[in-house]
Nucleic acid binder design. Structure first.
Lengths: 337, 337
DNA sequence: CGCTTCTATGAAAACGTTTTCGTAATAGCA
DNA sequence: TGCTATTACGAAAACGTTTTCATAGAAGCG
């Protein structure tokens, strides 16, 4: 590999001069600078990020911490879309992206934090993971620039999808269609779920509706089977709801199954809404009415904030950035009355 | 950050000794080695990958080259699943994963190859991209270890899903269900598509069936709308097929739409098969009969081969690794006769 | 005991940069 | 012309490792 030393030799200058010329310092004469740049291009020179990182303590490499168990991280439509957007933005700003894992190095398992230090990552974004594990806490409490997605830590920037507003929009829509008997099969207990549940209750309350406890059922995110069972329980009730909220679009498929297997129709016999607005919601029959989270914006904002934190820490506000979604109307909610 | 120098000072030894002790060299006394290791742990020492890479020319970092336009790479279920599996395997072997893009560095756009050199990547896997662009060719012709997925280059290891066998299995199944009038709406022209089309014809031929040209239509992968239009054309034919092959599971959704909007039923009025075996195929009503590609195996094999190429180049065969899929039976193909 | 052979350790160079500081040459100015 | 200020460049140290080679001392051996 051709290094600055080679260019220096070829141009009869010092490596220092080459470095400055290539990095556009002002104290190199125009003529010499251009000569050096031409030589660099001609010789196929390319900088070495390791050497540069060693000297500057900056890698221009960002870590992404996703659940690293199969079938959870990359194949999760919502987070995959966020990651995609994050990647696009980061790359435009000149940053690369490396997965942060708990790899082996030097014969022992690294923690996430150690891994970030090892690779000299400039910052890390955390998403879709159990935020309460010691390893995640270690990372969050470290002095590394961190941005979290859909989870709040004190003193850390968080990008969160506005679940309160989203759920309110969904409820408003459903109530607007005349529904008063509304059930919610919700996902695993976490802050996102809690936001959605409270917003669900509050929004219905403003429409003068109180939901009986029996209408609130627990399933799990992206778990079609469990959601199907919960749906079957709802269908079996003597006073069954006219509209059912599901944890997310993917598990809504389970609800669809339950309805169809019971010989009923959507939305004629029962209405269903989802959450996420991922492609599968457009593929279902009838199309699912759902709330589309703005994954593009979430990913972009996460990258922007993280880079701001790295490049201009003094002027970067530590705050929670709420990203609103939009209602995606399908044909899964019947107009009543 | 605590470095080897600090440990050396603390233990009254040289950095060389520390390095050897920590890397398990045999020429350091047991007592001293343990003392140094203990000190390292106590002081919170962690190696610096940049310094190590600078010295050894090895980064233990693998590049993945995916289509970097939004909505194509990470959000593509098939490739996301492969990537997920690749990542798991690579991490178990101690490698990290970095996206290879055409970032800006030193005020100019890097090619993929330059990017790999810049980061000192040990190898790179290429998938889901236009393999004919100059930038990809530059990378493939370089001396970097490369593994491609679903595409063949001379002198390079390729992991390819067995589309010939897969399509044959699908055809055999469909013929076994008594179908003789079979159409194929296929995807964009590339080697995968060509394999599938020839295998489609050949397999039908062995069942004594020749397919009229009018039954072969061109759509695009993951394009539900175009596939829907093609399906409508097929439905409008006076002598229409009894079974239709679609480009992939995702675009099959378009075919489902066309059928339903025509007031017809699947599979009673027309049968449909997909390709991929991604989650959406299980969500459709009726469940889609499709061929599930073994993404887990493809990703794992890609990582294994790439690492073998890096670590033991002499003994690694350059070959095409065919990975078979399995037929996933749904209820979208009607039993005839 | 004198010789060789290990064993355990360290000195130093090297990897490819960046950056500070010093200095020679030139320019500006009275 | 003599002075200072500016410009243009280079020497050298440093970043944190790895690795080669040298060497002091211990051990083996007759």
């Amino acid at each position: 590999m051709v290094s600055m030393k080679d260019i220096a030799a070829r141009c009869n200058v010092s490596v220092a001069t080459v470095s400055k010329a290539l990095n556009g310092y002002s104290d190199i004469g125009k003529k010499k600078r251009e000569e050096i740049q031409a030589a660099a291009k001609e010789m196929g020179y390319f900088p070495n990020s390791s050497a540069r990182a060693l000297k500057t303590n900056r890698t221009y490499d960002l870590g992404i911490l996703f659940a690293d168990n199969l079938q959870s991280g990359l194949t999760h439509d919502y987070f995959a879309a966020i990651l995609d957007s994050f990647k696009v933005t980061a790359e435009m700003r000149g940053y690369d992206i490396t997965f942060t894992s708990m790899n082996m190095v030097a014969n022992r398992r690294m923690s996430y934090y150690e891994h970030c230090r090892y690779r000299g990552l400039d910052g890390v974004v955390i998403a879709n993971i159990d935020f309460t594990t010691p390893e995640v806490l270690e990372l969050v409490r470290s002095n590394l620039p961190v941005v979290t997605i859909d989870y709040l830590f004190d003193g850390r920037i968080a990008i969160v999808s506005d679940n309160v507003k989203g759920m309110k929009d969904l409820v408003d829509y459903v109530c607007g269609m005349g529904h008063t008997k509304v059930a919610y099969i919700h996902g695993d207990d976490n802050s996102v779920t809690r936001d959605r549940i409270s917003s669900f209750h509050r929004a219905l309350y403003t429409h003068g509706i109180t939901v009986p406890d029996s209408y609130i059922l627990k399933s799990r995110y992206r778990d079609g089977d469990t959601t199907m069972y919960r749906m079957q329980e709802l269908l079996a009730m003597q006073d069954r709801p006219t509209c059912v909220f599901t944890p997310d679009d993917f598990s809504a498929v389970g609800a669809y199954h339950a309805v169809q297997e019971a010989g009923l129709r959507i939305p004629e016999d029962i209405s269903i809404v989802g959450y996420d607005g991922i492609p599968i919601s457009r593929a279902l029959f009838p199309k699912l009415t759902t709330l589309m989270q703005d994954t593009k914006q979430i990913g972009r904002k996460a990258a922007q904030e993280l880079i701001a934190l790295i490049e201009t820490p003094k002027t970067t506000l530590i705050e929670k950035c709420l990203i609103e979604g939009t209602l995606l109307e399908g044909a899964s909610v019947r107009k009543l009355g």
